[in-house]
Design a binder for these strands. Sequence first.
DNA 1: TCTGGGGTCCTAGGACCC
DNA 2: TCTGGGGTCCTAGGACCC
Length: 421
Amino acid sequence: MYGLVDCNNFFVSCERVFDPQLNGKKVVVLSNNDGCVIARSNEAKAAGIPMGCPAFKIKEHTDPNQVIQLSARHIMYHDLSNRVFNIVGKEVVNLQEYSVDEAFFTLRHKDVKTNHQTMAGLVKKINQYVGIPVSIGFAPTRTLAKIANHIAKKDRRITDGVYWLIRPEAIDIILRRTPIEDVWGIGRRIAASLKNKRIMTAADFVKMPASIVRSQFSVTLLRTQLELMGHDCQIVNPVTIAHKTIMTSRTFGKVLTSRDEIADAIVSFAEKTARQLRDESSVAGSIMVFVRGDRFREDLPFYSNSCQLRLEIPSNDTMTIAQQALKAFNIIWRDGFSYRKAGVMALDIEKGKAIQLSLFDPYDHGKLRRLMTSIDSINNSYGSRSVKLAPSLIRGEWKPNQNHFNSASQTLHFYTGMLNP
DNA sequence: TCTGGGGTCCTAGGACCC
DNA sequence: TCTGGGGTCCTAGGACCC
């Protein structure tokens, strides 16, 4: 028996915690460059603004003057996310955070009957203590729990925010009412080809012969089918997930042509990636760097490339990783092109592995580790990039545009890293 | 004018080996 | 002139998720 707790309209709800004037209004939160809509209030959803909608296309759906558009403040969202899951973690077992706003957990079967009160109480408690509305769905598998959660969210008044999708007859009825494209694991492409075969609902899909699902689609889709039938296929790794890759990338605020400016960005991405590796006590075996032009500018010659380099010794120290990232960048850099996006990725990650010293090790890793720890602790206390590597002191031309921070919110400076020294 | 960022898993096909 | 077959490993790319 799986439970799924999911925060409603999470980023918008977070903004509302610190600015109640946003309640009842059409509010959207925008992605990094104030580019796309990544969260919508119910009012914004009702107005027809789709997820992923580019900000400048909002006017195609509704009067943009009535829509409050906010730049994302992910640090704040993660903070509130931790608070929510801390509360949940105290009342359930095997909590697995699946994303910033949702987590699965398990429930022993005998608990089912007695738990509705507890769970409805939990929903209330989270709203009271953190200010975030959540919904909880229960079902025999994760894929069904997703559907249950959706119902809990949609019919909040009836369900108290908690819905149990347990009885086989109930599951049958719900699957008949679930459009195929709403099933977790079935995206646009697969939904379209299933519809070509007249598979319109989850119930239709369940009736499809497994052999056809396997041969014409994939083992992944077969697992989704089994999950809908109530067979647990462990779609999510049940152990606390160690990252296999860690990436930092950004679309620049404008098109860049200068090698130094982009190198500046690369170094700062490397810093962030290395920091995250250290936070997870992991080391990376190789580093990948990519650059690309602006895919929407047909007037500019397009160039896109990537380069992956092994590290001589797996590492998580900023200087080693920044150095290797710059080396990779220099290999793929081409003069005369325009660049809009770049990123640094750590691969071949090994968890908790101590840095191994080699005969050819050019560094004293003991010293390096102490240095990194010091930098991390300074940055923890004084803002995330108080101490940084020299190449990234240049200018920050690459910085994304974010012009819509909610100035009414008391937490603005705290959560955008714009604290005064 | 303005189109995100960060992940996972699976598969097909090439390189290489015996 | 004939030009195997089976296995592994790696990579790129496609699909999905939030």
